[in-house]
């Protein structure tokens, strides 16, 4: 009797922690989902049984069914991130190192950053066709802005006194660049790359949902067209889990490489 009381007290205490509330919320969502799905009281077709979604997700993970689409999407996102970093980091360093240039171009960059990049997709289709490269271009332009803007922010944080001290100690231009500037901006650049990755994923996959021959975004719309709702949910879940894992891996790696890498989370909105 005493043991049972002790257990209930422990359970009640656990439920009053953030983890307990999160677990309870998740259970509640699952219960409501199943209730709606099984009773069919509201949009029954929109709430397929969770077991069906999980079965579909298991198929993606254990069979090569998604492999060609995953390859296409990874190629687009990887290429987009590479291109964005290739242009974004040097341009960010260049603009950030010249105060006058920055005063001229910064408002232009900020205004351009607000335009949803997906609307430029028809232009890329005209120039690059409907193959993977037009999607890669959308991803690249979406990732370019966070990378270049955070590189500029990094350059702004470099204190002139560090450069002066290095110069007094006899350091040359190359040494100042590699020993002063690079370590100082690394944290911001890594954060920019991580947020840029999120932007590239959103940009490229969103473009795939519009016009594509392959890719995870293309499959979402295929399933939507065929009204395979459970498959569509599981694919979305697959994409969210994959993005979260890559985001977490990058965050961990960058935190080790540069402890000043920020924990900014707003990647989803740079498309």
């Amino acid at each position: 009797m005493y043991k049972r009381q002790q257990n209930s007290a422990f359970l009640a205490a656990q439920l009053q922690t953030p983890l307990g509330v999160q677990a309870l919320t998740l259970l509640l969502i699952i219960a409501v989902w199943e209730l709606i799905g099984r009773t069919g009281i509201l949009f029954a077709e929109l709430f397929p049984p969770l077991i069906e979604i999980m079965r579909s997700l298991w198929t993606y993970v254990t069979t090569p069914i998604m492999l060609p689409h995953l390859k296409a999407s990874l190629y687009e996102v990887g290429g987009a991130l590479g291109l964005a970093a290739l242009f974004g980091i040097p341009l960010g360093i260049l603009w950030g190192s010249r105060t006058r240039w920055l005063e001229i171009v910064e408002p232009l960059i900020l205004y351009a950053a607000v335009v949803p990049k997906i609307v430029i997709f028809p232009v890329f289709i005209l120039f690059l066709g409907i193959d993977v490269h037009s999607k890669l271009a959308v991803g690249a332009i979406a990732a370019f802005f966070p990378i270049s803007l955070l590189t500029i922010a990094g350059m702004r944080e470099v204190k002139q006194v560090y450069v002066d001290v290095a110069r007094t100690a006899g350091a040359g231009a190359y040494q100042i660049a590699t020993r002063v500037y690079l370590p100082a901006i690394a944290g911001q650049v890594f954060t920019g790359i991580r947020i840029g990755m999120g932007a590239a994923v959103t940009g490229a996959l969103l473009a795939e949902t519009k016009v594509a021959k392959a890719g995870l975004g293309f499959m979402i719309v295929e399933y939507y067209g065929q009204f395979r709702i459970a498959d569509m949910y599981s694919l979305l879940l697959f994409i969210f889990i994959l993005s979260a894992l890559v985001n977490w891996a990058m965050k961990t790696l960058f935190a080790r490489l540069s402890p000043s890498a920020r924990a900014g989370q707003d990647a989803g909105m740079y498309f």
Binding site: V21, T25, G198, Y224, Y233, F240, S243
Partner: peptide, 29 residues
């Protein structure tokens, strides 16, 4: 405070994930 602390992580996760890809669900609804 308890609810605030518990849901802040959910909100951050939602914000950083490509939620916009779920637009077909909204089209169906």
């Amino acid at each position: 405070k308890l609810i605030g602390g518990s849901y802040e992580m959910f909100l951050a996760a939602l914000f950083s994930s490509p939620v916009i890809l779920a637009y077909p669900i909204f089209l169906v609804t």
